[in-house]
């Protein structure tokens, strides 16, 4: 019980600090190069293992190698939606502007991953099923997810006042999050109902030599998300605070020596 209070205060302190634009700008800026570096190294490593080292699949031949981008992108598309909705929730409850900005900047990145999952899934479908589009459960779910993302982005862009827009779009993201499992399972179930036994794209058993590159690529994509999200959020902060003193200090590199 006694430990509870300071811990909570530390958390609130962190949220409070994150809410201060100059602090956020400088603090997160330090991570960006490292995140990009991690992304680059992991991607090169994962692609080398996945595209050149891993053996061909005994059923699908070489085409399964699309998995190393398709599956991480599909994972990211769902993860980013959840993260966006949770940040939106924090933004709605505590009205932290930086959280609003991060939630809203997650949307285009998530939509990009959804698009990648759709396009690569469709390119994977051609050699596997002989057609570019099948109403397979995962592709259909991704398509609905893309619409959810487009709704959030559309609502955010349609409103003039950025903070009000962010709150409205955050609420929409939250409603979408509640619906996401229902949509996911209903689409899955709809698919089995109408197609009987469909061919699944990913086999049930994966050899470790095929699994490692997949995990490395999945982590690489998380680095990409982190780096891209911070980059975008810092730029949005500059844009919104165009008229405030700290933005000039930051871009002229005179932070600290500014005299009012």
């Amino acid at each position: 019980m006694k430990n509870d209070k300071p811990r909570k205060n530390a958390f609130l302190m962190f949220i409070h600090k994150m809410g201060s634009p100059p602090w956020f700008y400088n603090f997160t800026g330090k991570f960006v190069p490292w995140l990009w570096a991690g992304f680059t190294v992991l991607t090169i490593w994962g692609l080398y293992l996945g595209l050149f080292k891993a053996p061909p699949d005994y059923l699908q031949g070489e085409s399964y190698r699309i998995m190393y981008i398709h599956v991480p992108a599909a994972w990211m598309s769902m993860l980013i939606y959840i993260v966006m909705a949770v940040m939106g929730f924090i933004a709605l409850i505590w009205r932290v502007r930086t959280m609003e900005i991060m939630a809203m900047n997650s949307a285009p990145i998530g939509a990009a991953f959804t698009l990648i999952a759709l396009v690569t899934g469709s390119l994977w479908g051609r050699p596997t099923w002989g057609t570019y589009w099948v109403w397979d459960a995962r592709l259909t779910s991704e398509l609905v997810l893309l619409f959810l993302y487009l709704g959030v982005i559309g609502l955010y862009k349609a409103m003039d006042e950025p903070r009000k827009a962010a709150r409205a779009a955050s609420l929409l993201a939250l409603v979408g999050l509640v619906n996401m499992p229902i949509i996911h399972y209903s689409v899955k179930w709809w698919n089995t109902l109408h197609q009987g036994s469909s061919i699944s794209m990913t086999g049930s058993k994966i050899d470790p030599s095929m699994l490692w590159p997949l995990l490395i690529m999945a982590i690489a994509m998380k680095f990409y998300y982190g780096a891209n999200l911070i980059t975008r959020s810092r730029i949005t902060l500059l844009e919104q605070d165009l008229r405030k003193g700290w933005t000039r200090d930051v871009i002229e590199g005179t932070a600290g020596e500014h005299k009012s």
Partner: peptide, 16 residues
């Protein structure tokens, strides 16, 4: 299968 695999990675790289 090569064009589909490389196509996937090229398109993904462009989007990212």
């Amino acid at each position: 299968h090569a064009p589909f695999i490389w196509g996937s990675y090229v398109i993904s790289a462009i989007v990212l």
